[in-house]
Design a protein around this nucleic acid. Structure first.
Lengths: 143, 143
DNA sequence: GAATCATGTAACTTTAAAAGTATCTTGATT
DNA sequence: AATCAAGATACTTTTAAAGTTACATGATTC
């Protein structure tokens, strides 16, 4: 499959929305992301379902943040976009008959689960607000 | 892309080879893996290039282990099959112009790199010999 | 040395899931 | 009523691993 950029893109959008007054249209967001409005709506539908954004139709409509940035973590966004498979590598068969294969898969899955747990813990430890603040600091630190 | 099962499959094969006297043909290995001989040759070519296995043509030919199992780690095998992308998730653009996007991508990549480092460290800490021994223990521990 | 067996290699097609696209519907604002 | 923007459906495209077909190369056996 292609690299899954949904988390990255949604964080990008959310930070822009946080710095922007009023709603952003799917069209405008699509331009920011270098994609098209349908992809934007499709991906952001997950965030809306989770209550992190809201959308309005018609004139002056578009997308707005609907949650407290302090209370939403990067992990929350990861899950809202589908909480997809993190790894590109894995085992072929989930329940092999071969005992050797079973042992190999379990050993591998242990390692993968550990790495995934670390990843999710790190994502869970950062809020959107912190990410936004760290961006602000980057800018003011520029010479 | 599809889930990459090359590491898993090669570990499976190597453990079988370690418990088997004489060469195994691509045909026999393919049956073990539920695939076909060309996929086996293609994938095992990486292991041969790294010196972990050798192959012989003709009657009585096939694949044999060519390295000390104590000295080859799971990470070595991961690298021998191409050391492929570990994650299915990531950023779309490597060098975005947008400063917000840049900040998001760097934050994400930090987290991903940390998880990848843990994963590779864990893979590097286990030798094929240890994996084979842990399999033996599993079997004898069975009631 | 011919037949056979097994690997080596090239050139494809298939698969799976995200991404991209076209088109239409729904609903809100002017 | 016209326009704007999201919602939704039904596709096609993309990507790399995996799968497949076919043939070349080389070793063994008879």
């Amino acid at each position: 499959m292609r690299a899954d950029s949904r988390l990255s893109r949604m964080l990008h959008v959310l930070l822009h929305m946080a710095r922007h007054d009023g709603p952003l249209t799917s069209e405008a967001i699509a331009r920011m992301l270098g994609t098209n409005p349908v992809v934007v709506r499709r991906t952001m539908a997950g965030l809306r379902k989770a209550g992190y954004v809201r959308s309005e139709k018609g004139h002056g409509g578009g997308w707005e943040i609907a949650a407290d940035l302090e209370k939403v973590s990067l992990l929350d966004i990861h899950r809202a976009v589908g909480g997809p498979r993190v790894f590109a590598i894995g085992s072929e068969r989930a329940n092999p008959e071969c005992a050797v294969e079973k042992a190999v898969n379990e050993a591998l899955e242990d390692v993968l689960h550990e790495a995934e747990a670390l990843l999710l813990a790190r994502l869970g430890a950062v809020t959107l607000a912190e990410l936004a603040r760290s961006f602000g600091e980057r800018c003011s630190a520029r010479p």
